[in-house]
Design a protein around this nucleic acid. Sequence first.
DNA 1: TCTGGGGTCCTAGGACCC
DNA 2: TCTGGGGTCCTAGGACCC
Length: 386
Amino acid sequence: MHFIAHLDMDAFYASVELLRYPQLRGRPLVIGGRRRGTSEEKEFPTLRDYAGRGVITTSTYEARALGVFSGMGLMKAAKLAPDALLLPADFDEYRHYSRRFKDAVRAVAPEIEDRGIDEIYIDLTALVMAATDGAALDPWQRARDVAARIQQAVFEATGLSCSIGVTPNKLLSKIASDLDKPAGLTILREADVPTRIWPLAVRKINGIGPKAGAKLEALGIHRIGELAQASPALLVKQFGASYGAWLTEAAHGRDERAVVTYRDPKSISRETTFETDLHPVRDRERLSRIFTDLCVRVAGDLERKGFVGRTIGLKLRYDNFATVTRDCTLDEATRDAQAIRRAAGSCLKRVPLDRRIRLLGVRVGALARPGLPPVREPSPTKNLFD
DNA sequence: TCTGGGGTCCTAGGACCC
DNA sequence: TCTGGGGTCCTAGGACCC
């Protein structure tokens, strides 16, 4: 029996900003964009002042009530909620609070898996078992107590609220933490899957995105319960052996993945979207400067994190949003900005440059720690008799 | 005036080797 | 000369997530 928690900070970026500007509490607030809008003189610009190509990274619950959500273009959001306040993202500050809340959790429960800046999985099994040992206490009640203590610790360390789901696995906990936001604490046992999980939309499952969601919809499968009852053979036929079989498992709330407390990065990248699309010939100089700058920044990231990499990749997005990538593998791993620039430059020669460019990115993969052999997973050996 | 930036994982095909 | 299965490595694209 496992007790796995998923902890999700409530409207994280926006909540951090509200610590700084408490006078804005209760007003619709959106985080996103790179720079201030056109009216610099205003202390707090509104969405209607914005001009650019940014997207919403977070919005407060008051803003969500107006129909603006993460990922939405700011220009579109401005039409729905022109009076919502817009603050630019301050990632240094968010990282600071991220460290604080994770440290606070770690002090209570050390088995943490990082899932980005504002969420984590926590394996509570050992804690719950130790606490239950000898006592006639319901282990799920113990799990609830531990989770409540974690919420309290996070609040004391940061002044921020979070929502937690505790269930037998990561898949269910991820869904559970979202069931009672903000400041929710949801406990789900296997037996609760039909009543609590099956009524939900299939998109609530982490791993079913826009494409798979639309395809399921077209098959008449809207709810997780319908997915659970769907013919596994049909799903395999429609989605392939691997993903199709996983869909059935997920719908039944089955998931065996362990909480992984550390993982080496696989790639490090930098990319930038230009304020206006650039012409490959007429803006050659500017493009070249931006290109070199990206390489320098990736090299800096590699240095700081202590990696070198053998595969250098280039990413380009055209004005029509079509995206291409090219990469090449060097004989020797590097973290040298000039070597990266040279390799990425050779990739650039293999890409058509017949339209304006919206985005340029540079990536380094096949990472290794200098002096050590590359971190390479043993590739899965297919064995029919497994 | 649609659509950021940082990632992971999977698939599929071709080159090349035994 | 033709026919085989693996296996690894590399590249490109795409789905998905925070």
